[in-house]
Each structure stands twice: as C-alpha cells, then as structure tokens.
Deep mutational scan, measured.
Amino acid sequence: MEQGTVKWFNAEKGFGFIERENGDDVFVHFSAIQGDGFKSLDEGQAVTFDVEEGQRGPQAANVQKA
C-alpha cells in the first residue's frame, strides 16, 4: 500500500485526487473508500491506498484513512 495526502475531494460529485509520496496525483472515486457510512475525504487528510489501472489511467483503490 502507498501513503498519500488528499489534495482535494468533492463530496457532491464523489471524486477527487490524492497526492502520492512521489508527488504525482492519483484519481480517487468515493466507491474506493473503505468503511461504513458516508464516504468522503477531507483536504490534507492522510490516507493509505493501492493503485490500479482504470479506464482513464491510474486510480486509487482500497482507500483507508490513516
């Protein structure tokens, strides 16, 4: 798993971006967030995640709040 920081996340649209430790950004969809209840992330929040190849390039999977 990688570690990163939430760059931004739009809860209304259900997606955002995580900044990886290497400085690259990776797309995150709310469906990739682990846990119960409303799935959202806060700007600046530390997270761990896997990276999978999506239809439009790399995207975060198995996102967990650190």
Rank of each mutant, 00 (worst) to 15 (best):
D42V: 15
E12P: 08
F30D: 03
G14Y: 02
K65V: 14
D42Y: 14
K13H: 11
A66I: 15
N10R: 08
G16E: 00
F27E: 02
D25L: 14
F27T: 01
N10C: 09
A32Q: 08
S31T: 13
I18T: 00
H29Y: 05
A32H: 06
N62E: 03
G57M: 04
G37H: 07
E19C: 11
A60D: 00
K7Y: 04
L41Q: 02
A32I: 03
T5I: 13
A11D: 09
H29T: 04
F49L: 04
A46H: 15
F38Y: 12
E43W: 12
G35C: 08
L41C: 03
V28G: 01
N22F: 12
E12Y: 14
I33T: 02
F27D: 01
Q3G: 09
E53W: 14
G4M: 00
F9K: 03
R20E: 02
V28P: 01
N62R: 08
G4A: 03
E53T: 12
E12A: 15
F17T: 03
Q55D: 12
G54S: 11
D50F: 13
G44A: 05
A32G: 09
V47Q: 00
V63E: 00
F15V: 06
R56E: 06
K39I: 08
V28S: 01
E19V: 14
P58V: 09
G44N: 07
N10G: 04
V47N: 00
G16L: 01
Q55G: 09
A32S: 10
E21R: 14
F15Q: 03
A11L: 10
F17V: 08
E19R: 15
N62H: 10
E53I: 15
H29I: 04
F27M: 03
V26C: 05
N22Q: 11
F15E: 02
K65P: 12
F38S: 07
F15C: 05
E21V: 14
Q45I: 10
G4N: 01
F17W: 08
Q45W: 11
P58Y: 10
Q59N: 05
Q59E: 10
A61R: 13
G57R: 06
D42G: 10
N22E: 12
F9W: 15
F49H: 01
V63N: 00
A11R: 14
G54Y: 06
E12V: 13
A32V: 06
R20Q: 07
E53N: 13
D36P: 13
F17E: 03
V28K: 00
L41P: 02
P58G: 05
K13M: 11
F15P: 00
F27G: 01
F49V: 01
R20H: 06
E53M: 15
G14R: 04
N22G: 12
V51N: 03
I33D: 01
Q45L: 07
G54I: 04
V47Y: 03
L41A: 03
F30Q: 06
V51R: 04
P58S: 08
F27Y: 07
G44V: 02
A46Q: 13
E52N: 08
I33M: 05
E52V: 15
G54H: 09
A61M: 12
K7L: 06
I18M: 03
G44I: 02
H29V: 03
A32K: 08
G23Y: 09
I18Q: 00
A46K: 15
D42A: 14
E43R: 15
A46S: 12
G16Y: 01
F17M: 09
I33E: 02
F9C: 03
W8F: 08
Q34W: 10
G4H: 01
E19D: 08
E52G: 06
R20W: 10
K13C: 08
V47I: 06
A32F: 04
T5H: 15
Q64S: 11
Q55I: 15
K13T: 06
Q55P: 15
D42C: 12
V28A: 03
P58K: 11
G35Q: 10
I18L: 09
A66R: 14
A61W: 07
Q55K: 15
S31K: 09
G37M: 06
G57K: 05
P58M: 11
K13P: 02
H29F: 09
F30Y: 13
Q64G: 08
E19I: 15
M1R: 13
Q64C: 07
Q59R: 12
R56G: 09
I33K: 01
A61S: 09
F9M: 03
F9S: 02
T5W: 15
Q45D: 13
K13V: 08
K13I: 09
E43Q: 15
D25E: 09
F9G: 01
D24L: 13
D36R: 10
V6S: 02
N62I: 04
Q64D: 06
Q59T: 08
D50T: 13
K39A: 07
Q45E: 14
A32T: 05
E53H: 12
P58W: 10
N10D: 12
V63A: 03
H29Q: 03
F9I: 04
G23R: 10
G54E: 04
T5S: 09
G35M: 13
E21C: 12
D36G: 10
K7Q: 03
G4L: 01
V26N: 00
H29E: 03
Q64Y: 09
K7C: 08
L41M: 05
N62V: 04
K7F: 03
V51Y: 06
A32Y: 04
N62M: 06
N10E: 05
Q55L: 14
L41W: 04
V47A: 02
V63Y: 00
R20P: 04
G44M: 05
V6R: 00
A32N: 08
V6P: 00
E12R: 14
G35Y: 07
Q59G: 04
R20D: 05
F38L: 09
I18C: 01
A66F: 11
G23N: 12
V26D: 00
N22T: 12
F49C: 02
F30T: 05
Q34S: 12
V6W: 02
V28W: 02
Q45P: 01
F38R: 09
S31H: 08
T48F: 14
V51K: 04
K13E: 05
G23T: 07
Q3H: 15
G14L: 03
F17N: 02
G37A: 06
V26L: 14
A46C: 10
V63L: 05
Q34R: 09
T5N: 10
Q45M: 12
R20M: 08
D25W: 13
D24I: 14
D25K: 09
V6L: 05
D36K: 12
T5C: 11
Q3I: 12
G16S: 00
E2S: 10
D50Q: 12
T48A: 08
V51Q: 04
F17S: 03
G14P: 00
V28I: 07
F49E: 00
E52F: 12
F38T: 07
D25M: 13
S40C: 10
G4C: 02
A11Y: 12
V63D: 01
F27R: 03
G35W: 10
A11E: 10
Q3E: 10
K39D: 05
F49A: 00
W8P: 00
D50N: 13
Q3N: 12
R56K: 12
F27I: 03
H29D: 03
E21W: 12
A46F: 11
